[in-house]
Amino acid sequence: MGLLIEDKSIAVPGEVLAEGMDYLPADGAIREGENVVSSRVGLVHVDGRAIRVIQLAGSYMPKRNDTVIAKVVDVLMSGWRLDINCAYSAMLPLRDATSDYIEKGANLTKFFDLGDYMVCKITNVTSQKLVDVSMKGPGLWKIKRGRIINVTPCKVPRIIGKQGSMVTMIKDATGCKVTVGQNGVIWVQCDDPEKERIAVDTIKKIEAEAHISGLTDRIKEHLDKVSKK
């Protein structure tokens, strides 16, 4: 009876995490009869009576109010189709793209052309995963320079850190501008290419070690070491 697996260990689908009714299944776990069973590969997190399995892999699932970095894949009659690094593409309608007056039949590539990147916000997601995005709002803009890197979307919270602590640390140490999209697409820009490289390497390091405890200290040490060189 009770907990059968250690807190902070790795669970696999179908693994029995706890026996009896003392524990409750939360995200990533299910109850099967008397048992709490894991439903994915992930990190076990026991919070009081609740057992959660934190996702370590998987694709991005669009959510309303997420800020994402998107790429234009098609220019339509009344807007743009964007790739948001998931199975579903997003739609940017004209009225949410710009406050400029656009004449009927105008060439929309003047605003966003194929292959352009932008930081935008998801305004709506339907049950069939039709996604609408908007460019209107603070902190949403068209990306003109810098570089784009991709990380596993479920590592994004670790890259941002508590109240943005991790990403601020990278920004302070390297002097780079960094924007992290919830979809795992990250924009990094710096005038010094060497510093840009350090920032990218650091983000990749966080991605690889996100599930090992003591991450913040390790990253701090790493940044101190590389920026001294």
Binding site: V12, P13, G14, V41
Partner: peptide
């Protein structure tokens, strides 16, 4: 499939 992070009842 498990490695890809899909929700699965069991292996």
């Amino acid at each position: 499939l498990a490695d890809a992070g899909f929700v699965m009842k069991d292996l």
